Simulated assay, not measured.
Amino acid sequence: MATRKCTITPPGELDREAEQGGLGELVAWLEEEYGPVTGEERAAAEAERGEFERHFTEQE
């Protein structure tokens, strides 16, 4: 007997995937216009994101 794989994705996940796809397109466009993101720029962005996460985690 053959089986099929079925994946069920909660609606919020679909939204997240769409947002991430849009962000990927934005990054690609920005890199075309201004050049690739450097390691230093990426590290700074990750540090800033970490600060935001800590800030909002502390508020909960």
Rank of each mutant, 00 (worst) to 15 (best):
Trp29Phe: 06
Glu17Gly: 07
Glu31Leu: 14
Ala2Tyr: 01
Glu19Gln: 08
Glu60Met: 14
Gly21Ala: 06
Met1Val: 12
Arg49Leu: 15
Glu40Phe: 02
Pro10Glu: 14
Phe52Thr: 04
Pro36Glu: 14
Pro36Cys: 12
Thr57His: 08
Leu30Asp: 02
Leu14Gln: 01
Glu19Phe: 09
Ala44His: 01
Ala43Ser: 05
Leu30Ala: 13
Glu60Thr: 11
Gly24Leu: 12
Pro11Asp: 02
Gly12Asp: 08
Glu19Trp: 05
Phe52His: 05
Cys6Leu: 13
Glu46Arg: 10
Glu13Tyr: 04
Glu32Ser: 15
Thr57Met: 10
Gly50Ser: 02
Gly24Asp: 03
Leu30Arg: 08
Arg54Ile: 00
Ala43Asn: 08
Ala45Glu: 03
Arg42Trp: 06
Arg54Pro: 02
Ala43Arg: 07
Glu41Met: 13
Glu13Phe: 00
Glu58Trp: 12
Gly22Leu: 01
Thr57Phe: 09
Lys5Val: 15
Thr3Phe: 12
Glu33Asp: 10
Arg49Pro: 02
Trp29Pro: 05
Arg16Asn: 03
Glu48Asp: 15
Glu32Val: 14
Arg49Val: 13
Thr7Gln: 08
Thr7Phe: 09
Glu32Lys: 11
Gly39Pro: 02
Val37Thr: 08
Ala18Ile: 02
Ile8Thr: 11
Glu46Ala: 11
Pro10Asp: 01
Gly22His: 02
Glu25Ile: 10
Glu17Pro: 05
Gly39Met: 03
Gly24Val: 03
Ala44Trp: 05
Val37Ala: 10
Arg42Ile: 06
Gly35Cys: 12
Thr57Lys: 08
Arg49Tyr: 15
Trp29Gly: 03
